[in-house]
Structures are given as C-alpha cells and as structure tokens.
Design a protein around this nucleic acid. Structure first.
Lengths: 219, 219
DNA sequence: CGGTAGATTTCGTGA
DNA sequence: TCACGAAGTCTACCG
C-alpha cells in the first residue's frame, strides 16, 4: 500500500462531477487498484475514491486514475501542489473478516426454532420462491394455516411493503404475514398492524439461548 | 491524522460482533475521533471502523476505541503484535466537496422544463406537501388534469411504491403519476405500468441543452 | 453479466 | 432527537 500525504486538488468526473478544493489530504493506493482520498475528519467515507479495476497514470505533479464504467469512463484527477510524504508498505497476505449477527444468522436461528416467534409454527421451507423474490420463511401454524415470515435486522416501512407484495402474490388462501426483526420502527409497526401483519421483535442472543428473556420487568 | 501500520488483530462488538484475524493493516486515527482499519485490498470500505464521537485508550500492545451507542456500547479492540510504522501528520483545515449531478439537480431541471417529460405539462409547485412527505413535482397537463411526478436518479420498485403511496394520499380526483429517472430498472417499469404510472427516462446533459437527444438511431 | 437485497450501511435534512 | 430518503452508495448473491 502506498500512502501519500499532499496538498492537492481533486477532480472527479463520472456518475457525477465533483471538485475537491486544494488542501492537505491522505491518498491511499491499494495493491488491488483501489484509490481513496481521505481527509483528517469526516468519518469513515473517503472524500473521493475509485474502486478496482483502475488504471493509475502518474505524471509530473498529478496522478490520474481511470476506470471503465459502462459505455463511458470514470476519471479521478489528483493535482498535487505540495508533496509532504510518500511511503509504500508491503502488507503481505490478508485475512477475511469474520462477522456474526447479520440478517442471515437471524434467519438461521428462526428457521431452527420458528416457535420463538411466539406462535406454534412449523417450518415448511426457507427462501420460499415467488415470482417477485423469495419469502424468508414459510410456515404453517397449529391450525394448518400458512404463515409467511419476513425477517429483517431493522424493520422499516419498506419491510412491510415487501411482505405485503409477497402476500399479494402468494396463491394461498388465508396466508398470514409475520414481520420479525431485532428492531421494528414505530411507523413500520403501525403500518403492519393496520394491514393485519403480526410484528415480533427478536433477540439473537436469546434465540441462541445465550441469554434468558428479560422477564424481570414484569415481576 | 495518525497513521499506524501494524500486524494486528481486531475485535469489534456492537451492532454485531466481528473478528479480524492477525495481519498487517493500516490504522487511521482522524482528528475528529474517526478510527478506520484498512487492508491493502478490498475497495473503499474499511474492514473495521468507528465513527465519532469516540474515546481512544492506548495501552501496552493494544488500542481500545469506545463509543456510546444507545443503551449499550460499541467497542473496537486492536491488539498490536508488531508495530511497523507510526506517523502523525498535521493536515490543517479542510475544504468541502462540491458535487454536481445528483437528484436535486435533476429536479431543478425538470421543474424548469416539465415538458421534457414528453407531455405538455405546467408546473404547479415543487415539493408539493402531503401528510406522508412531499411529491417532487406537481403539474397539470393540457386537459387541466393533475400529474404527480416522482424523480429518481435510479428508479427501483421502491420508487414506484413511494409514488403509489403519494397517489393514494393525494385528495385529487384523477391525479396521474409519472416516474422520471436517469435509469429505470425493468422490474420498476413493469410494476409502474401495471399500476398505470407512466415512465420516462431523462438525461441530465440533454435537459441542460449540453447535448442533443440521440436521434440518429431512428434516422 | 445484470438485477436485487443487505449493510456495524453512512450521511444529510426536516419535523 | 428521531425518522426518512439519498448515496458516485458498495457489496454479496443469485439468476
């Protein structure tokens, strides 16, 4: 990885045009072709960037990064006024990030234990196909009625709309909808209940039995 | 900005838990409290990060970054096995990025020239208020009928849903819907047309008169 | 390869 | 502060 600290101006043309006035920035050139222009503030997102595959052309006082983007071209032009530092580090092999707690894990746990949704449910299949996309979980309840379950980490109105579209498309008489999420936004809950969709907030740690449901509030 | 290159392992607990196995990484500590862990590959997003406000605690062989996140806490623990470089740069004042070509510009151009939507339209107002949010453009056509226009850079099913919600809420008899975007996804077009919503793809450069419509295809 | 859904989305804006 | 919508979203997955 090459790290350059320089007073520079950056011009981007591509999906939009943008100009970054002259100031001191950090330029990162990764070995996979990624180029990032970072400021000393402003959070995790670079001010300008280009994702691989790129072509980097270095000239006197400027660096131009190009990328084919469909029929046209993306171009990042870095005009260097004052080079303050320029170092390259050999960082060797990488190792992948291991994540836990994303939506898929929630789906796996609920597929294994659909009763955690607070109803007596039996799983029929995960990723039940419809012509507009898969329903996360398709179950049947104690009465034999069908129940379509949509799972989100955070449920917004969009999740309710999505489940509603599925329910419209599912050719099953009286199929109910259940929305399960770690967090259900108030407006989503209101819309869901107005449409007869049951809402359930679930906790991944509780699902896994790592932590007991917090019942002390009610004792 | 402090830049550290080190062989390290990173543990994140917060909205999810993640472990980044030991390897050589770039650690960025911005003056606003942002902390980013970058790899020598993998595009523009850091492997791990924390956005301000943060508290950074440095100890022997490890750096812990903490942040209050609602009722719980986010924690990023960086265990340093081998410190390869550690430099700090004073980057001085920043300057804001100037953008052009985003959705707002599209709305401005279409507000100035609603006829570009391929119909004889007259603008009544931009950001027409409803109780669930503003309609981008409200117009009347040659017959005096009302037309609600939703503008997107890229129109997906969600844009159709949004416009549909507006049309349901607008208390105007026979108000039509028009979806205008630089790119309209096929599924969005299908859903829109099934609901009687007219789709128009627009080109910002053409709208501005910088480029003529490409008519050569039809000659 | 295009399209869709997820993301520790982040980030801005308006109520 | 909360909630919603945009983003050069990016990225993984599935057809």
């Amino acid at each position: 990885m090459r790290l350059v600290v320089a007073r520079c101006e950056v011009l981007y043309t591509g999906r939009l045009t943008a100009r970054l006035p002259q100031a001191v920035r950090l330029l990162m050139f990764k070995s996979d072709g990624s180029v990032l222009v970072h400021d000393d503030a402003g959070g995790y997102r670079p001010l300008n960037w280009m994702t691989p595959p790129t072509v980097v052309e270095e000239r006197e006082g400027s660096i131009v990064v190009r990328k084919r983007a469909g029929k046209s071209e993306d171009k990042l032009e870095i005009r260097i006024a004052d080079l303050l530092s320029d170092v390259t580090h050999d960082m060797g092999e990488s190792a992948a990030l291991q994540k836990d707690g994303v939506e898929r894990h929630l789906q796996e746990e609920l597929a294994a234990r659909p009763n955690a949704l607070g109803q007596s449910l039996q799983l029929v299949r995960r990723e039940w196909p419809t012509d507009i996309g898969p329903v996360d979980l398709m179950c049947r309840d104690a009465s034999g009625d069908w129940v379509a379950v949509e799972i989100k980490r955070i449920a917004t109105i969009e999740a309710v709309e999505q489940l509603t579209r599925y329910l419209e498309r599912i050719e099953i008489e009286g199929c109910r909808g259940v929305l399960a999420a770690q967090v259900i936004k108030p407006q989503a809950r209101t819309l869901a209940e107005a449409r007869g969709i049951h809402c359930v907030e679930v906790d991944l740690a509780v699902l896994r039995g790592e932590r007991e449901p917090d019942l002390t509030l009610f004792t």
